[in-house]
Design a protein around this nucleic acid. Structure first.
Length: 463
RNA sequence: GGCGCGUUCGUCUAGUGGCCUAGGACAUCACGUUCUCAACGUGAAUAUCAGGGGUUCGAAUCCCCUACGCGCUACCA
């Protein structure tokens, strides 16, 4: 079968439990690019199996933010596909069927233990000095009759994975290499909860297999769970997908996860703060991957071309350098064609009439502002000037400036600049004072150009 | 505590036994340009590759130990 490459199918499986994190976008990016590079399929599957953490509307918001970052999916919510439904809560029968298959194969068993008994069991183990409590397999030893009796009386139950002792479970990770764990360290994980929903472990394995997933790229916090999944694949007799675990993101300086204290955390917040999706994506690409060249500016298309799983970093955490993100965003703004930037700004400031007015009547401000903003959110302070209080001395400068401007017979940036130079020379003041007088800020867009745009009358009014 | 994983400039990294007296980018500093601030250009500084043992003619690169960090240890994902 050499040369018969299996069709690449990858997935992103968000849980609708809250806001979509910027790190999730990084994972989307890698999976999406890998699919595109291999002419494969990128699908989205919603893992809404935790009803206690379910957040109303979260699915729509997650799909929207993925879209807003520029990604599309070939199968999944909204687009359908041959392997649907793509929402786990609509696949409950499937998980039950496979859980029962495992029970029949003795690879799993019914457990009728109450939460209270589990709690007590853990406390007892703790008292004995065992910190990581494991289920004691009590229900594994229930007779067939007892199990049936309990089922007949509808006693609440779960289905647990039956982990055999003294086995070495190992798997090969594309990033981390060979990883092996002793089965004695693996708990008899619940597979099917008492409410009939699967746990993550059953859900992913069943769905990844049924949906033909060939490669799994996810955060490396999943490494410890992977052996459980391997046991499941083996029990079902299914082929293993390729695993690649990605380094997680941390806050710069701290070895801790991203925190609101330092800035945006959710994917949506970054957009709201005025970051461009293309800059964000470019930044995210390098958080866990590097082409090995000195090229740093990457469009999505270029990334698809160069992305290589073998170049994913084997490290546990990568710092999210917000300063570098700002630089990169500024870089993208500077290099964006004016018309395109104008559209972005109009969308960003769609509820701000003051800025919108500037964007429609004085578009020339755009090219002046371009090199002066790192985020779209900084545009407003550059073009919407504020009033400020002046000292007596400053007022004198202001009046001189006003009369100079008033005397100009021609109103253009050269004549205005001449006036500025004269004022600065005569009054021996710094340029920043004129900015304060005109704009209310110590600095801003070049005055000659700005005032030319504003017009003589309005400029004089400002003073 | 147990298990797993990691550790190169302040940060993200290049690096898979000799090209490394460790390269790039961000940040920092200096100079140039200048109506301010940016942008831009040029240049500077910053890492005995966590520490200690090996293996080898030769190690950031291979092995062992230690330290530190992170993750997991739920009827959460």
């Amino acid at each position: 079968m050499q040369g018969m490459q299996k069709q690449v199918r990858v997935r992103m499986a968000p849980s609708p439990t809250g806001e979509y994190h910027i790190g999730h976008i990084r994972t989307v990016l890698y999976n999406w690019a890998f699919a595109k590079k291999n002419n494969g399929t990128f699908l989205i599957r919603i893992e809404d199996t935790d009803r206690t953490r379910y957040v109303e509307g979260a699915i729509d918001r997650i799909l929207q933010i993925i879209t807003d970052y520029g990604f599309t999916w070939d199968e999944g919510p909204g687009v359908g596909g041959a392997y649907g439904p793509y929402i786990q809560s609509e696949r409950l029968d499937l998980y039950k069927k496979y859980a029962l298959e495992l029970v029949n194969k003795k690879a799993a068993y019914y457990c009728f233990c109450t939460p209270e008994r589990l709690e007590k069991m853990r406390e007892e183990q703790k008292a004995k000095g065992i910190v990581a409590a494991k289920y004691d397999k009590l229900c594994l030893h229930l007779s067939q009759d007892d199990v049936q009796k309990n089922l007949d009386t509808h006693k609440p139950h779960v289905i647990r994975l039956n982990v055999l002792p003294n086995k070495t479970i190992s798997f090969k990770d594309v990033v981390f290499g060979e990883i092996s764990v002793n089965s004695n360290d693996i708990d008899d994980q619940v597979l099917l909860k008492s409410d009939g929903f699967p746990t993550y472990h059953l859900g992913v394995v069943v769905d990844d297999h049924l949906m033909g997933i060939t490669h799994i790229m996810r955060g490396n916090d999943w490494i410890p769970s992977t052996p459980k999944h391997i046991i499941l694949y083996d029990a079902f007799g299914w082929d293993l997908p390729v695993f690649a675990h990605l380094p997680n993101l941390k806050e710069l300086g701290a070895s801790k996860k991203l925190s609101k204290r330092f800035g945006p955390v959710s994917a949506r917040e970054f957009l709201d703060a005025g970051y461009l999706p293309e800059a964000l994506n470019n930044f995210l690409m390098f958080l866990g991957w590097n082409p090995g060249t000195e090229k740093e500016a990457y469009s999505l298309d270029e990334f698809v071309k160069d992305f290589d799983m073998a170049k994913i970093h084997k490290t546990d955490l990568v710092a999210f350098n917000r300063e570098k993100l700002d630089w990169m965003n500024g870089y993208y703004i500077q290099n964006m064609p004016d018309e395109k930037l104008l559209e972005r700004l109009k969308t960003y400031y769609k509820n701000d009439t003051e800025v919108l007015d500037v964007l429609t009547t004085k578009t020339a401000f755009l090219s002046l502002a371009k090199t002066r903003m790192k985020k779209l959110s900084e545009f407003k302070d550059l073009v919407v000037w504020k009033k400020t209080d002046l000292t007596a001395e400053e007022k004198e400068v202001a009046l001189l400036f006003k009369s100079k401007l008033n005397n100009l017979s021609e109103w253009n940036k050269e004549t205005i600049l001449t006036s500025i130079r004269e004022v600065l020379k005569e009054k021996k003041v710094k340029g920043s004072l004129l900015y304060k007088i005109m704009t209310g800020y110590e600095h801003g867009l070049p005055l000659p150009e700005s005032l030319e745009l504003l017009g003589k009358e309005k400029s004089l009014q400002r003073i």
